[in-house]
Computed example of a mutant assay.
Amino acid sequence: MTDENSYTTEEIAKLLRISKLTVYDLIKKGELPAYRVGRQMRVDKSDLEAYKARAKGGYRPAQAAYSAPLQGQAQQTIEQAQSTGTRHVIISGQDVSLDLLASHLEKRELSLRPLRSYAGSLNSLVAMYTGKADIVSTHLFDGETMEYNVPYVRRILTGHRFLVVNMLARWAGFYVQEGNPKHILSWTDLTKPGVRMVNREKGSGARTLIEEQFRLAKIAGRDVNGYEHEETSHLAVAGVVARKEADVGVGIEKAARLVGVEFVPMVKERYDLVMLKTKENEALLAAVLDILRSAAFQKEMEAVGGYDLSQTGKIIYETW
């Protein structure tokens, strides 16, 4: 088959109007068969058309990423990449800052190929424990210690050596309709008669925050109307509130601005990255820390807006 009947990853990205990282993600998951020609990855036209046909017929949840073994040409692609010294680095989490991190990593001459997974914080940590993620983001609130992330990381990554480094801080709170007509200002307000909630999926950082705050306030989920209504992203939750299908949801401030709902700040959460301290990860750890602390990366983050970068790149916790 000639090059006229195949595409590079850059051409695929333009045709599908997605990022090149998303193309690599599809290849990694085995959804888009690919092969290597020299240093270049290519996808046959017939395989692209087959992928488009499948995509029209159904949707695969993001949390299923990397859960199934790779098959066929996709597995061959990964094996070829490994034989040429290229390492695929899976970055798991949902914030746009992770896309910027992946972009900076890809620009470095380290034979690293960043791929993105969009699982929630707890699911991402479990993926790291089972060897299916290399860089994991977490924003998990622990009501016992009133601390973010470290208590969960220590429990889940038991037996591993790891590093927790701050990525950013951001406000989490309530999405409410314009003017906050139900006067929702506290966690107990979610139990008011006539208030409908939209929840996040189990395993997400937002869901953990909700459950911990409910526990501290002695609120039972069964007493909150809409507690069983789950969405899988901050934007989706804000969208439900914007459409007036719910009166309140919990998420980050940025999504409220994007969707156009009112935001009631409740908690300034710490958003950290977790990486394993292994010999294989030495170059990766050094590169990530260097990127986080660089003026170029922080300038891009400031342009996105809505982030507190005062501790970005600071090591929060480290095992030896």
Rank of each mutant, 00 (worst) to 15 (best):
V164A: 02
G205W: 04
L100Y: 04
T145M: 01
M301G: 10
V164K: 03
G30R: 01
D44R: 05
D3K: 01
R222P: 00
V224F: 12
Q298T: 12
E318G: 07
Q76N: 13
Y129S: 06
L21C: 01
R155Y: 04
D189V: 04
N180M: 09
K107P: 00
K132F: 10
V274N: 05
L168K: 00
N149M: 10
L289R: 12
H88S: 09
E230C: 11
G131H: 04
K132E: 09
S121P: 00
V288W: 02
W320Q: 14
V241N: 11
D308V: 13
L112P: 08
V23A: 03
L157G: 07
K299M: 10
D47L: 08
A50L: 11
R42W: 06
E178F: 01
E201S: 03
I90L: 13
N180H: 08
L258E: 14
P33F: 05
P193M: 09
A133S: 14
P61A: 15
G131E: 14
G260Y: 08
L26S: 00
Q73N: 00
I18K: 00
E302V: 05
Y59M: 15
R39M: 08
F214E: 12
A303H: 08
P151R: 02
V274G: 04
I252N: 03
L115M: 02
M266G: 07
V23H: 11
I316Q: 11
G173H: 02
G226T: 14
N166Y: 01
N281C: 08
H234I: 04
Q311V: 10
E280Y: 01
V261M: 12
A283T: 08
Y7W: 15
S204W: 12
M301Q: 14
F214W: 15
R215E: 12
N5Q: 15
R200Q: 13
S103A: 10
M301K: 09
V224E: 04
I78R: 09
H234P: 01
M275N: 00
V241M: 02
Y152C: 05
M275Q: 01
G226V: 15
Y317C: 02
K192C: 06
I291Y: 04
E302P: 00
A127P: 06
V153P: 03
A303Y: 01
Q82F: 03
S6R: 10
E269N: 15
E106Q: 07
A62K: 04
H104W: 13
V23S: 01
D25Q: 12
T9V: 14
V136C: 05
Q40S: 10
K192T: 13
I210N: 10
I219F: 06
E253I: 05
G251D: 02
D189F: 11
T9G: 12
R39S: 14
W320T: 06
S92V: 10
A55C: 12
A286D: 12
M146D: 11
E147F: 09
L105Q: 02
L112D: 07
D189S: 11
V150A: 02
R60G: 08
R87L: 05
T208H: 06
Y148P: 01
I315F: 08
R170K: 14
P265R: 00
T319P: 09
A283I: 05
D272Y: 09
A169G: 04
T278K: 08
V261H: 03
S124Y: 02
L185S: 05
V23R: 01
V195W: 15
